[in-house]
Nucleic acid binder design. Structure first.
Lengths: 291, 291
DNA sequence: TTAATAGGCCTAGAAAAACTGAGTCTTGCT
DNA sequence: AGCAAGACTCAGTTTTTCTAGGCCTATTAA
C-alpha cells in the first residue's frame, strides 16, 4: 500500500512514434531510417507497445511486416496526432528562432546551387542564419525542422525550372578537341553513381539506332563528378538545372548540344508554417530570381 | 565529415509534453503531479526546450510561472497535438484490450460505493477485468487511460445523485443514547480531514444563532472515519451519497435528520472513446441502477 | 521588519530507458 | 539448395531522465 498509488500509465511517446513511423512506412527498417536508430530499437518499441495494449499490431512476414486489423484501425489516429505534434514543434521553432532558417536539399543541389545562392540570400535577409542540410530523401516538412526543401520530383505540378534535361558538359579546353563523334564517344564519360543510367539513356535518345559503348568513372557525389569535369577529366552527363550556373560562368560548356528531356524537375517546397515567416518569403524570392 | 550527417533534430517528445502540461496547468509543480515526476524533472525539460527553440517559454515568477508571448502562441497547438495523441492511445488501449476497463474514483467513492457495485458489475460483464484506481483529482479522460471516472463536482449540469447533502450519522447503538441536543453535541464529532469544515458548516446551517463548539478526531481517509462511526466511536458528518448504502443496510443511521444541501454532486464521466465500447455501456447501466 | 512559505533552480548521483551490434531465424526467390 | 532481406533476441553500453536535497527569490502574515 503506497501513499501515491501507481496509476495505469500511458504508453511511452517514443514507442508510439516508432509505431506510427513503422506503420506508415511499412517496415521496421524504414522506420529505423526515419528515426535515425537501428531496426532493433524500433522492434523493441513495437514489442513494448504490443505488450502495453495486450494485442499484436503487426503481422511479421518474411520480408517486412504488415499491420494487423488493430494496427490499421489506429494508424490514422496516430498519423493525425504526430502531424499535429510536428506542426506545433515547427511553429515553436519558427516563432522562437525566426532568425534561423533550415534548408534541406539533395547533396548535389546543395553544393551546386544553394551554395551559389547563399551570398544573395545573406544579403536579402541580414542577420539571419541560413543552415543547409544535405540528404538523399526529401524530409516531411510537416514534421521535421526545415523551412524549405529542394529536391527533384517526378512530373511535379509546379517546379522551379520546368522539366529537366540531360546534357553532356565538359571543360572548354576539352570540348575544343572534339572534332567528330568518335572523339566525343571515346572520351572519358563521367557520371554520378546514383544516376549511372544517364549516359546510356541520353545516348539512346540521341542515337536511337546505335548501341552505347562509352565508359568512364562514376562518383558517389555529383559535385565530385563536376569537379572532375571542370578539370578536364572527361565529359559529364549532367542535369541541366544543376550545371546552369557553371555553364553561365563558363567553367563548363555544352559538349554536344542535344539536350534530352527527363521527367524530373527541381521542386522548392515550403514548410506548412513558413507562411507566417517574412524571412522565408524573402528567401523564396531570392531563389526564384536566381534559378 | 560523416557519412550520415546529423540532421537538425526535433525536440524530445517528453519535453514537449512537459511544456504542454506546465503551460496548461500553470506551473511546474502541477505538471509534475500530472506526469508523476518531480518538479525538477519538469524544470529540466522546459529548460531543454527553451534552449532548443532559443527563446524563453515561461516567465519565472516568485510563485509559479507565467507563459511568455511565445509560450502562449504555441500552447493551443500543443494542446491539440497531445489531445490527439491521448485520444489515439486511448483508442489503441480500448481496441487492443476491450476486456480491461479502468475506473478512476475519489478514494472515498472507490471504497464506499464502487466496491459495493463490483459484484453486480462482474455479473453484468463477465470475463471483463474491472480495475479501480483511487486518486484525489479527476483525470483527464481524453488523455489518461481510464474509461470511467467518479468524482464530486461543483454544481455539475448532470450528476448521478443530484446535489449532495451533509448529514450526521452514527451507529444505531450510539444514536439510541441521544436524548437531547446536548448529548448530541458533546459526543465525539468525527470528520474527514479534507472536509474538516463540514461539521461547523452543518451546524451553522441548522442552528444559525449558535456557535459550533463540538470536537472530535479527523481522518485522512473518509472510509476510516466511516469505520470509526460504524464501531460507535462518534457521530460522523457525512456526505449523504457516500453513506447511502450503509444507511440502507442499517450499519449506520441518521443521528439528526437535518440534511444540509451542498453544491457538490457525484458525477460519472466516460472517456471520449468509450462510445465504441459496449462493455462500458453495460457498466454505466449497472452504476445508474445501483446508485 | 522579520519570519514563514511556496515555487522554481541547480547539481550530483542514481535509475531507467534507449540504443547498438552481432548472431539467429524465417521465408521468398533463383 | 543457396542466397538475400528483414525481423528477432540478448547482453552490454550509452544516453537520457529522474530524484534528492539544498539554495534562492518573492509574496504573505505577523
Amino acid at each position: 500500500m503506497s501513499v501515491a498509488p501507481p496509476r495505469p500509465s500511458l504508453p511511452p511517446l517514443n514507442a508510439l512514434r516508432a509505431f506510427e513511423s513503422a506503420a506508415r512506412l511499412g517496415g521496421f527498417k524504414q522506420a529505423a531510417g526515419e528515426l535515425n536508430v537501428t531496426a532493433g530499437a524500433v522492434a523493441q518499441h513495437i514489442k513494448f507497445l504490443e505488450a502495453w495494449c495486450c494485442a499484436p499490431l503487426f503481422e511479421r512476414r518474411a520480408k517486412g511486416v504488415s499491420l494487423t486489423v488493430l494496427g490499421q484501425s489506429v494508424l490514422a489516429d496516430f498519423e493525425r496526432a504526430f502531424d499535429a505534434v510536428g506542426f506545433a514543434s515547427q511553429r515553436l521553432r519558427a516563432l522562437g528562432a525566426p532568425k534561423n532558417v533550415n534548408i534541406a536539399a539533395l547533396p548535389s543541389v546543395a553544393q551546386l546551387l544553394v551554395v551559389a545562392w547563399l551570398p544573395a540570400m545573406r544579403d536579402a535577409v541580414q542577420g539571419v542564419q541560413v543552415s543547409v542540410t544535405a540528404m538523399e530523401e526529401a524530409p516531411n516538412l510537416a514534421r521535421e525542422p526545415f523551412d524549405l526543401s529542394l529536391f527533384f520530383e517526378l512530373n511535379p505540378k509546379q517546379s522551379l525550372t520546368g522539366l529537366d534535361a540531360l546534357i553532356p558538359v565538359a571543360s572548354p579546353s576539352l570540348v575544343a578537341g572534339f572534332t567528330d563523334l568518335e572523339a566525343f564517344m571515346s572520351a572519358r564519360h563521367i557520371s554520378d553513381q546514383s544516376w549511372a543510367q544517364d549516359w546510356p539513356r541520353w545516348f539512346e535518345a540521341v542515337f536511337p539506332d546505335q548501341i552505347y559503348s562509352g565508359s568512364g568513372p562514376s562518383y558517389s557525389l555529383f559535385s565530385m563528378a563536376v569537379e572532375e569535369a571542370k578539370s578536364g577529366a572527361g565529359i559529364l552527363m549532367a542535369h541541366r538545372s544543376l550545371v546552369a550556373p557553371l555553364l553561365k560562368s563558363g567553367a563548363l560548356v555544352v559538349a554536344m548540344d542535344r539536350p534530352v528531356p527527363i521527367d524530373l524537375a527541381l521542386v522548392l517546397e515550403r514548410s506548412p508554417i513558413s507562411g507566417e515567416s517574412p524571412v522565408v518569403d524573402a528567401l523564396v524570392e531570392v531563389i526564384e530570381t536566381l534559378v
